[in-house]
Design a protein around this nucleic acid. Sequence first.
RNA 1: GCGUCUGUAGCUCAGUGGAUAGAGCAAUGGCCUCCGGAGCCAUGUGCGGAGGUUCGAUUCCUCUCAGACGCACCA
Length: 616
Amino acid sequence: MKKILDLISSRMEEAFLACGYEARYARVVLSNRPDLCEYQCNGAMAAAKAYKKKPIDIAGEVVEYLTGGRDAGAGGDGKSTVMFSQTDAVMPGFINLRLNGSFLADYLNGMQKEQKLGLEEPGCGETVIVDYGGANVAKPLHVGHLRSAVIGESIRRMGAYLGYHMIGDVHLGDWGLQMGLIIEELRERKPDLVYFKEHYEGEYPAKAPFTIGELEDIYPCASAKSKKDESFKERAQRATLRLQGGYAPYVAVWKHIMAVSLADLKKNYGNLDVHFDLWKGESDAGPYIPWLLSDLQEKGLARESEGALVVDIAEESDPKELPPCIVQKSDGAALYATTDLGTMLEREKLYQPKRYIYIADKRQELHYTQIFRVAKKAGYVPKETRMDYIGFGTMNGKDGKPFKTRDGGVMRLEQLIADIEEAVYARIQENRGVLEEGPEAEGSGTGMEMTEEEARKTAKRIGLAALKYGDLSNQAAKDYVFDLDRFTSFTGNTGPYILYTVVRIQSILRNYQESGGNAGDAGILPAEGSAERELMLELTRYNEVMETAFAELAPHKICQYVYELANAFSGFYRDNKILAQEDAARQKGWIRLITLVRDVLTAGIGVLGFEAPERM
RNA sequence: GCGUCUGUAGCUCAGUGGAUAGAGCAAUGGCCUCCGGAGCCAUGUGCGGAGGUUCGAUUCCUCUCAGACGCACCA
């Protein structure tokens, strides 16, 4: 289905053209003065100069055309409805519009018949690689990984919903210095392992010589040691180099580290309801690196500098010369940029994406600028391929500083999720308590009874919504304050509030069905009340919002929309007693209307990465 | 030093080249014989500052102040 703004705009274009003005002045936008109109066109003022006329005269001519008895709907289907109920030219040159109620109702009826509620699929199956997650092997996920996972998952879902072939890749950190650090630390702890015997010729054990718990202790320990102990660091660097060179015993250890760690990471991302199509890592770029380095040199792009191999990426238009991109360390080891470029080579070979979207901390912006330029300069990625980088801000505590545990440490993601679930669970218990103490405690049939197990499960689902909505409702690029109490609140602009709205609609629909109601494929009728009309207008924005949000890679726009829609529903719910409505046709229309609201909300939170429970 | 990003209500955040800049939370005062009150209504404060472009700027440009971050062998 066409977007409602496009339908209105094309009607206006017709009018502008008919009056002798360029179509580009006809663009219609949502009104910012709902008291005056629903939509507005400001083109007359912009056109005034070009045509040397007073804006109000231009607006007047256009309105004259529209009201000249030829106001028709998008039509062509024989049952076209008049589009506007109001067309006013207002000083200094605004054209104020309101939709005809039948046109609006028709639009919604169209939406509910369509596959994706009237959403078109501009993606057309184009392949897009989304690189997010960025977990490091052998290190537990912590709050620093949250944003990449949550934002990336949402972007991937948005794109998929719009018909793109989205490929999400976790791109593990599994090939850099941290692996050398772990290997060296392991050697110090368990020097007798066969991997550290120089002339060992036998098979390597199938069982990992450590648990995930040990592994998680090894890395921070080794990392701290390398900062104090220079010789330890050198040994770790050597181990890294040997691993990258394919030294069999280290590769064997590395495989153990990978297996143990990956199982744990999959579990944790699963708890976040974050999914990846590919579990590739930096190591997968390994095979491409020798060719990459020699190719960069053959093309004359790479040069030696202070022992390292670098590629200049500065361009004339740069305000300041950007530092070159280091592709090989002076000790010969690969680093961040090298593996990222190697990864591109693999992705081009296997998937030929039309677009890349990288989601990483905004502090990495320079790095991405560098590798994007190298990739384009060397022709590894076609010129026309879009390469986007979303740099997200820091998650801060209430003090405005990066989020920490009480003792100042880095909080594990598991802990954060557990805290949120606990807070939500407490709220659920609170509500149950209030219910039981209430004057009419019997209240059975409300469907509010919940077993302990259900309550825990529900708390988990609501907690995830609280967490993700709290994060996604902020612009990605900005730092934001993580406030557990606020995010888990069941009122206000929060994830739980959105879920509550969906649950409440479900409850009404359930009651309606249980009392023998069946709306069948009844049509939504033109609105009678103002809240009803506002709700309907809000619904029409759906496809526009989805497209814009993806075009701008801005999940927060979807948050904003679902919140506004939920609020519009609240207004409608307040003014209209759906189940008490005696006019059967109107009641059916309302049932269809709120069903559509539920479906739109469900689709919206679906791309945000969470879902509503049955009850809460 | 150079560069990037960010400054909007007491707090947390949206927003737009257009007509009166919005939400939530907090505060105050109201509203329930209500399908789930986890709601609704009312009241009050704000675009860091200065110039410029424009018929019109909170939005675009320049300067300035403040904060965060980045500037070659970490990722």
